[in-house]
């Protein structure tokens, strides 16, 4: 899927620019992997009980679904250090300010991806106001699945890496759509 690669490159570039502006320091976002998977198959990557920071944006427009950005607990602490300008390694608990900063970061990353995705496929996709949760991965992701789609739905899984000051923090970006729409997207990714 060359088209997907192209989308990833552009989205990474956009997000890097926007994040650097937000943080006022050079920050780079890479996309290290993008794959269509069943949502349950994510669990080997992140255990269901593992604590994660999740930013969720409902997606509407010509296709409906959900965008979810996930950072493992330690990554979310490191990102908080960066976002609210603390000494690296000092965040051990997320304050209201941290949560709101992470939400904004999620908004930027998800927004960049959705914009590029929407332009490339020429479909109208609107990302809505983000919500934040810091809890078990399984509890977060199952609510999104229940909210929008059926069990064992497929998702586009994008592994991202945020690089700053020699640190590389891994995160995951999930895009879920209702099944017929998802299949149509896969077809257009193949054909364009």
């Amino acid at each position: 899927m060359e088209k997907l690669q192209e989308i990833n490159n552009k989205a990474a570039l956009n997000a890097s620019g926007a994040l650097s502006k937000l943080i006022d320091r050079p920050v780079k976002m890479n996309i290290t992997m993008a794959d269509v998977r069943k949502v349950e198959e994510l669990s080997p990557v992140i255990g269901p009980e593992e604590i994660v920071a999740g930013v969720y944006l409902p997606v509407t427009g010509e296709i409906t679904g959900a965008a979810l950005l996930i950072f493992p607990k330690e990554s979310s602490f490191n990102l908080s250090d960066l976002l609210v300008r603390r000494e690296p390694g000092t965040t051990r608990k997320l304050t209201g300010l941290d949560k709101s900063a992470l939400k904004e970061l999620g908004n930027i990353v998800c927004g960049s991806y959705l914009t590029v995705f929407s332009n490339a496929l020429q479909v109208k996709i609107i990302g809505h106001v983000p919500s934040f949760s810091f809890d078990m991965f399984g509890a977060i992701v199952s609510q999104i699945i229940t909210e929008f789609v059926q069990k064992s739905e497929k998702a586009l899984v994008v592994e991202i890496e945020i690089i700053f000051e020699l640190k590389a923090l891994k995160g995951y970006f999930l895009l879920l759509f209702e099944l017929p729409q998802f299949n149509a997207i896969l077809r257009s990714l193949d054909s364009v």
């Binding site: 999740g54 969720y56 409902p58 106001v129 919500s131 934040f132 949760s133 809890d135 509890a139 977060i140 609510q143 229940t146 909210e147």
Partner: peptide, 13 residues
Amino acid sequence: GANMFPALKSDIG
């Protein structure tokens, strides 16, 4: 029966 995203008006739980 929780709502993992309190900012979201979800009544599923």
